[in-house]
Write a protein that binds this DNA or RNA. Structure first.
Lengths: 207, 207
DNA sequence: ATCTATTTGTGAATAATTTATTAATCTTCA
DNA sequence: TGAAGATTAATAAATTATTCACAAATAGAT
């Protein structure tokens, strides 16, 4: 597999989301042109992105949606049920836990860590155990590579610990600044920053 | 002001966040090199990005943090309290409403819309009125340009309506697909996609 | 079975973005 | 006050990403 650029990697989830939606609607086959309209990405870019994974389509025909989803899901991780952990079970953390919609879509949260595990265990309505943060090393699921960070402070220390435990990717909900250890990647989910970005753009539109 | 690229626009919130943090810690002046280490963006890129807004720094000295924050905040919007609305006051919508931390940081949510306004008004602990979605046109705050979308379905219709009302930017929390009307921009805040993106990357790291 | 309409896949060309370099400007300290 | 050292701003080079153009392949019609 050729080196896939970050830009392309970022588009794959967009394709996958669209394909799942189309599949739900009973669409079986799609041309790059149609998908282009749907996701607002140039058809040539789509074909280029797809071609990096392999020969996914048939000339003169298009792409088989089920097949495509299967291939993407495979590229996403073994059996697409990557094990993830959640750190911090506050308001947002709970919302994430309760929102179980991504089971078998983008992995599964197998356990969570918090400073008040007893309280949190009662509060959450799902069957995901919450352990005390001090038990991180002890209860850490073997082979887990993704951690979702929802803590208000102390991110750096946790991140360092996670790095040592072999975590490669952080889904970062905190607004705290931390230095990312070598070899780790993160994706920020930051409402404030998102809004700010949008404001910058909207304002530069106005000029 | 020269045309600022999308890539640069996306970095501004990162700078702003870092600058605020530094300011809190009592730092008054920063060199592009120091900021570079802090945010993990090359110093040359930072200087380039900054120079697009104006001559923000002093040679041989660095950047004055307070000044920088002021300039950024100004670029962000008048008096940095842009008015925003929230559509959909479910679990996530409520979390966003309650999380009032961004007042005077990235604008303010002035009102919200939902299918069950009475219930929602009781549930939320903040002083933001929730109106019925059918009252969107009626209660829409004049001049509002940003809408936060937290509804489980029916996004397209709402988006079209918002477009007519003059909304320019959508902060999109829905997983629903919708076509963005001409002249509108959106930013997706999608945990599943974020995790998927991370998985794609982590998996391509493993190879 | 053959021909024609389509549509993908590929590699090259173009465009955009990031990084490096150079020149100019500022601060500081003697 | 002036020179040394530091740092930005502007420009050039390198890298990365997107788009284009066309060959190769397929489905479907006749």
């Amino acid at each position: 597999m050729a080196e896939i650029s970050r830009a392309t990697l970022r588009r794959y989830p967009v394709y996958l989301k669209a394909l799942r939606k189309l599949s739900q609607n009973g669409v079986k086959v799609i041309r790059s042109n149609e998908l282009s309209q749907y996701v607002d990405i140039k058809a040539t870019t789509i074909r280029h992105d797809f071609s990096l994974i392999g020969q996914l389509g048939k000339q003169g025909y298009g792409y088989d949606i089920e097949e495509l989803i299967r291939i993407f899901a495979e590229a996403l991780g073994e059996d697409y049920d990557e094990e993830m952990i959640l750190i911090g079970v506050g308001r947002l953390g709970k919302a994430i836990l309760n929102y179980n919609n991504w089971n078998h879509v983008a992995g599964e949260i197998v356990c969570a860590f918090d400073l008040k595990p007893e309280v949190r265990n009662q509060e959450t309505q799902v069957n995901v155990p919450v352990y005390h943060i001090s038990q991180l090393k002890e209860k850490f699921p073997k082979g887990c590579e993704i951690a979702i960070l929802c803590i208000p402070s102390g991110a750096q220390e946790i991140v360092n610990e996670l790095h040592e435990l072999g975590v490669k990717g952080i889904v970062n909900f905190t607004r705290e600044h931390f230095v990312l250890p070598e070899g780790m990647i993160k994706s920020d989910v930051d409402v404030v920053s998102t809004i700010e970005e949008l404001l910058f753009e909207v304002n530069s539109m106005n000029k």
